[in-house]
Design a protein around this nucleic acid. Structure first.
Lengths: 209, 209
DNA sequence: GACCCTCTACCGTAAACAGGGGGATTTTTG
DNA sequence: CAAAAATCCCCCTGTTTACGGTAGAGGGTC
């Protein structure tokens, strides 16, 4: 049985890095770099015929941003596994990448062997994440333990954040609408806000909800 | 320089698994299993004096659920790294565990070497996740690509979900309030709903936003 | 026992908002 | 070019919000 090598594309504007990755990956017989690009625009023109299984993608590119590029590539090739390889590991970049459809995110500082492991992992249906990224992701699920809000207030703010009206919340919590009004007044005082939108913003930002 | 072994606790009601883990971990000189428990209640009575760096935790336990237990342990020992090792890798269990404060989640099927790697990883500030879990987590960030909503409508629904009023949304998008009303009308039609709360619910559930 | 917090409930009001109907134009994009 | 998306405008009514006070019952703590 002859195994067809896994097809890989690279989108990276730094020539040295791009060629380095190419040489590295092509040195593994089960992988084959079908094409490399220096911008998303260029990639989008050819990627359908390349039909890669994996795309290594930088975020800082001339022209269209990498984030935008991920979304467009995913639209053309929904099955492609896009792994972001970037210097910028700030929360914004990371979550927006996943949002756009990235299957993995590795800091550019990763070793060559980690990069190859990442490609393996994504092909096995995993999601390669470098250490700091995985911790960041997990933390995004965690609540702030020292919220100023009481248990009930938190519950009310949650429902408020689901777009529900006072009456609806009252019905769902089996209390009087007036009670909800009081809770919300107290929430506003505790959070130092004067509107629903601000309360939700502060609540989300501080992970009270 | 003598390194103090990393202290580890195990909460697991299956005797064979619990002792297996203990023997495995104690075979590594840098680790030391300080205590093992068969329930959260038992663990909570002693864990403060154990002061473990890492806790391996099952979810299916007699008495208090593992999820509840994670939260309570984190309250007593905020610095402890809790790694869930469970058979149940359904979305609910996974996300509730992170929510409660778990730093990692491994399917019980993991090999011993993966388990030890996981302990290493969590001590280095990472978040050990088995393959299927990491993919599940990443997918939770991803939008549904075949949303019926246009780009602008999606943007409007997002802001609506942030608790913003029509006028506020109009200001932020630099368009007239009437435009927002039209968008919302169209969103309601497309989603087949008649209220803000329903639209947000459907939008979130289907990952349109 | 005094004190604080939480949860509950009530009254009232002015201003803002939501949701529903209609129609119309321009810009983008396949 | 035609379709889809995005923009803007008018009408209307009933609901909601945000804010001001007040207050009792129950829990926990000092």
């Amino acid at each position: 049985m002859t195994t067809i090598p896994t097809k890989i594309c690279i989108v990276e504007d730094n020539f040295v890095i791009k060629e380095g990755y190419k040489i590295l990956i092509d040195s593994i017989s089960k992988y084959h770099v079908v094409n490399t690009y220096t911008s998303c625009e260029e990639a989008l023109d050819n990627i359908e015929s390349d039909a890669p299984d994996v795309v290594l993608m930088d975020l800082e590119l001339p022209g269209m941003s990498g984030i935008e590029g991920i979304g467009r590539i995913k639209k053309k090739l929904p099955k492609a596994n896009i792994i972001v390889v970037s210097l910028h590991t700030d929360k914004e970049s990371v979550f927006q990448s996943f949002n756009a459809g990235a299957a993995g995110f590795m800091a550019k500082a990763v070793s060559y062997s980690d990069l190859l492991d990442g490609i393996d992992e994504v092909l096995q249906g995993g999601a390669p994440l470098s250490k700091e990224i995985s911790r960041m992701v997990i933390e995004s699920f965690q609540r702030n333990t020292d919220s100023p809000l009481s248990r009930r207030e938190t519950e009310v703010l949650e429902k408020l954040a689901e777009g529900k009206s006072y009456s609806q919340i009252a019905d769902e919590l089996f209390v009087h609408r007036e009670t909800i009004k009081t809770h919300i007044k107290n929430i506003y005082i505790k959070l130092g806000v004067k509107s629903k939108a601000n309360a939700i913003e502060i609540g989300r930002h501080n992970k009270y909800i």
